[in-house]
């Protein structure tokens, strides 16, 4: 699985071919649109950085980008296609309402920020109704996110007493509890992993959380959006809440 970066919305095929070449594979299982708008920012830039060409979300722009991936999927019908499934990311219910009726091939999955203190319950219910799998990024609450995205009021999921207590009962790290919670919610969590990914896989097959433990974690929701996305704002936008239709 890989993504179309937000500076490649007008040339999805080139982006896809580059990914296939970089990954040394024959096709992409699922190609995601990384952001629902093409507002590029340089890697590592400060949260105050803005792209003067940035624009607000447009259903037309989104569906044009999506259409380009549909064409890469549909190629499969006549010859070997480059893409098997289409994914979307960082959507809201309002944006989904605006685009789903315009798509020929439904999205298979939607990537969203999902962790115990930011559960996006309404969005997840909506996606489930539409038969779109919820993929949860930052499933541990991203304690190692960039310094520029850390604010004093942010909550560290894995340090919350509810999670440390449950982790103690299961003799594991709170990270494993976050993953078990996500899995039992029907999410597909994608913890950032460069070293310890076997422990993550084991979370999926070792003892599940009890109903009481799941209910206790459900109460941790507090709208704790850890990375606001300010760098994607367009000229004239009020603040980062506008990115998320809040």
């Amino acid at each position: 699985m890989t993504k179309v970066w937000n500076d490649m919305h007008r040339d999805v095929q080139s982006s896809c071919l580059k990914s296939i070449q970089d990954l040394n594979c024959d096709y992409i299982d699922m190609l995601f649109i990384y952001w629902p708008f093409p507002n590029y920012h340089a890697p590592g830039c400060d949260v105050s950085s803005r792209n003067p060409d940035a624009k607000r979300f447009s259903a037309e722009e989104f569906t044009d980008t999506y259409r380009q991936i549909e064409e890469l999927v549909e190629e499969e019908l006549v010859e070997e296609g480059l893409v098997r499934h289409i994914g979307i990311s960082n959507m809201t219910i309002r944006k989904l309402d605006a685009v789903l009726g315009k798509l020929r091939i439904p999205p298979s999955a939607c990537e969203s920020k999902l962790h115990p203190t930011f559960q996006q319950k309404d969005l997840c219910s909506y996606l489930k109704e539409q038969n779109i799998l919820s993929i949860g990024y930052m499933p541990l609450g991203s304690p190692r996110r960039p310094e520029r995205d850390i604010l004093p009021e942010d909550v560290n999921d894995m340090q919350l007493p509810v999670l440390t207590r449950i982790a103690k009962a299961h003799l594991c790290h709170p990270a494993i509890i976050c993953l078990k919670w996500a899995l039992q919610k029907g999410h597909l969590p994608i913890p950032f992993s460069v070293h310890n990914y076997e422990a993550n896989l084991e979370a999926a097959v070792t003892e599940p959380l009890t109903e009481e433990e799941m209910a206790a974690i459900d109460t941790l929701e507090c709208g704790n959006r850890l990375v606001k996305g300010q760098v994607f704002l367009w000229p004239g936008a009020t603040d980062w809440h506008e990115l998320w239709d809040e």
Binding site: M1, D29, M30, S108, I135, L183, L188, I190, S193
Partner: peptide
């Protein structure tokens, strides 16, 4: 997990 067209995907991934 099963996707809408019946294809299957592992329940956990690597970010």
């Amino acid at each position: 997990y099963q996707l809408y067209n019946g294809d299957r995907i592992p329940c956990i991934g690597m970010g």
